[in-house]
Design a protein around this nucleic acid. Structure first.
Length: 589
RNA sequence: GGCCCCGUGGUGUAGUGGUUAACAUGCCUGCCUGUCACGCAGGAGAUCGUCGGUUCAAGUCCGAUCGGGGUCGCCA
């Protein structure tokens, strides 16, 4: 059937007088009674087919029966459109195909929405009929980009000596990290596999195996709540290498990322990417994935306010908290109610209030002025870099709340003020992450990256004295304020790994139960190794200019982790449950 | 689990508590030989997500629930 087929979207003046065969869908039919125009669409694009009454009568009658989305086969001759009827809005608008024969390969029901770009239709309707949604050219373009990205990754890594190796999808459940998706075992009553959150342990085992350079485009699963950029199953480019240090990983990955952007969007990203320590990222931007496309950095004002009469600030400082601010340029005209609404905004992130000073033309306006001396206010303005026309915002709280709040307020204001330059690509590495953080709920340390991440050598002594100060050999690639990838140099020494388990309050038995095989493996000559993983979906989002991860996944889940097309998840037969030795205990609603 | 937004013919929207729920588009029928979101004429198509409440009267007000989206928590 494909023999001698021509793509509709690639026809042009150079094809004039060629007799061609098109296979595709009816985009639109315009029936003028005597002459019928059909726009025929296939993956390559759209071309206009003309049906004249002087063609065989039965073929013309057939053309009158055509409707949207009928699948047809047309044979005809390419010709120049009559002068004056060219369509400059169409890639193939200079030519048309005069139909000589028509076959209807299949009829179609009227689709629930237009098969064209910029459809204004509820996303749930698109998802229910995803196979139709994916017919739209803009969706097809996304998946062509996604495909190209994967091909570039594969060829780049192949050329650099990496082996593509698959790892299991049915895995062992591990503590820590995200909630696992579980799969009951039929053969082994009462036991479960977990779907991989990432191929982490297997890729390290492959390093023990001497594979030296591994990659995989791997599906990962995390049973957590969804977001605009988060799906329960997603795809990572997973990479691991032996005999490396950070300085081997980052430049190689910079080459890969710049190659992808150069080939897909023709954008040149300068290398090396800037690096920012976690500490600096948090202090300056209030985020470990800072958007550095604009300024408005966080400024510490503790030095200015610590001796003041403003108890809200001084009390928090006394308790070890922080007082920081951002300067919103040219915002003094912001209406009072909008400023008040920002108090609600910062409340989302746990801040109890938002102090501000409006630097208007007629002087300063602020509910907190009365607590400060003139000198203190002048110092505050100087430190903040405030000028007439600005608003200074302040948050006082414990450090995590201050950073989170101001970091998000900074992004929100930048969006409202249009400070983020369109089309700019801003790649950077965030390095020197802390190894551990303290979990108040569980009253113990937890790993920030994961528990196989190597501490920095010079910080090893701190593991005994001040574990929270220990920095990890971990790095994240951040693009336009989005975490695109992350990785680390791993622990390859058993004694260090056991020390980590110890700090994480994993007992030796527990550690052995969960990771004994890994600890055993580490005793058989493990090379120093490390790696990284990139979120393919997020990368495709940026390359395709999408703000929603569902758009770059062929068959995504809704926010409640269900598939509107297949109705998954769904109840199963009692017999299936019995085979799996499972009894349900469902809460009645 | 919390907060916020949305739900009206196939699709997108309008709709002061008060007649037969309006408009656009799509669909069907007829007409039409140069359109390209063709045009013209006519027609069909809605238990206003669901359940309950207030009211003489509910698409409209209230509550619950279901579904979709955003977000906080969560996501090593």
């Amino acid at each position: 059937m494909l023999e001698g087929r021509t793509g509709a979207g690639n026809l042009g003046k150079e094809n004039i007088d060629e007799v061609i065969r098109l296979l595709g869908w009816v985009q639109t039919r315009r029936d003028h009674g005597g002459v019928i125009f059909v726009d025929l669409r296939d993956r390559s694009g759209i071309t206009q087919v003309v049906f004249n009454p002087d063609m065989p009568e039965d073929a013309f009658e057939l053309a009158e029966k055509l409707r949207s989305e009928f699948v047809i086969e047309v044979t005809g001759k390419v010709r120049s459109r009559p002068s004056g009827s060219e369509n400059p809005n169409m890639k193939t608008g200079e030519i048309e195909v005069v139909a000589e024969s028509l076959h209807i390969l299949n009829k179609a029901k009227t689709p629930p929405f237009y098969i064209q770009d910029q459809v204004d239709v509820d996303e749930s309707v698109r998802l229910k009929h995803r196979y139709l949604d994916l017919r739209r050219p803009e969706m097809q373009k996304i998946f062509m980009i996604r495909h190209r990205v994967m091909q570039i990754m594969r060829s780049f890594l192949d050329q650099n000596g990496f082996l593509e190796i698959e790892t299991p999808v049915l895995c062992k459940s591990t503590p820590e990290g995200a909630r696992d998706y579980l799969v009951p075992s039929r053969v082994n009553q009462g036991t479960f596999y977990a779907l991989p959150q990432s191929p982490q342990i297997f890729k390290q085992l492959l390093m023990v195996s001497g594979m030296e350079k591994y990659f995989q485009i791997a599906r990962c699963f995390r049973d957590e709540d969804l977001r605009a950029d988060r799906q329960p199953e997603f795809t990572q480019l997973d990479i691991e290498m032996s005999f490396i240090e950070i300085e081997d990983v980052l430049p190689l990955m910079e080459n890969l990322v710049t190659k992808i952007f150069a080939e897909i969007s023709g954008t040149k990203i300068p290398v090396p990417f800037p690096r920012l320590s976690y500490q600096d990222a948090m202090e300056r931007f209030g985020s470990d994935k800072p958007d550095t496309r604009f300024g408005m950095e966080l400024i510490d004002v503790a030095g200015v306010v610590k001796g003041s009469g403003f108890k809200v600030f001084t009390d928090i400082l006394a308790k070890g908290g922080r007082v920081k601010g951002i300067c919103a340029k040219n915002c003094a005209g912001m209406p009072r109610r909008e400023i008040d609404a920002l108090t609600g905004f910062v409340g989302i992130y746990g801040a109890k209030g938002l102090a501000y000073i409006v630097m208007g033309e007629e002087g300063l306006k602020s509910p907190i002025l009365k607590f400060f001396t003139e000198e203190e206010i002048n110092n505050l303005i100087t430190v903040m870099g405030g000028e007439t026309g600005d608003i200074l915002f302040f948050v006082a709280d414990k450090e995590s709340v201050v950073h989170n709040t101001l970091g998000n307020l900074r992004l929100e204001l930048a969006k409202r003020l249009g400070l983020i330059p369109e089309g700019s690509l801003n790649c950077l590495w965030v390095t020197e992450f802390p190894l551990l953080e303290y979990d108040e709920e569980e009253k113990r340390y937890v790993a920030i990256h994961h528990m196989f991440t190597s501490p920095m050598e010079e910080d090893l002594p701190l593991m005994e004295t001040d574990p929270l100060k220990v920095r990890a050999k971990a790095y994240d690639l951040v693009l336009n304020g989005m975490e695109l990838g992350g990785g680390s140099i791993r622990i390859h020494r058993r004694d260090v790994q056991e020390k980590i388990f110890d700090l994480l309050s994993l007992s030796t038995e527990e550690a052995y139960d969960k990771f004994g095989y890994l600890l055993d493996a580490f005793e058989y000559g493990t090379p120093p190794h490390g790696g990284i993983a990139f979120g393919l979906d997020r990368l495709t989002m940026i390359l395709a200019g999408r703000e929603n991860i569902r758009d770059v996944i062929a068959f995504p889940k809704t926010q409640s982790a269900s598939c509107l097309l297949t109705q998954a998840p769904s109840p199963v037969e009692e017999k299936q449950l019995q085979e799996l030795h499972i009894k349900l205990n469902v809460k009645k609603k």
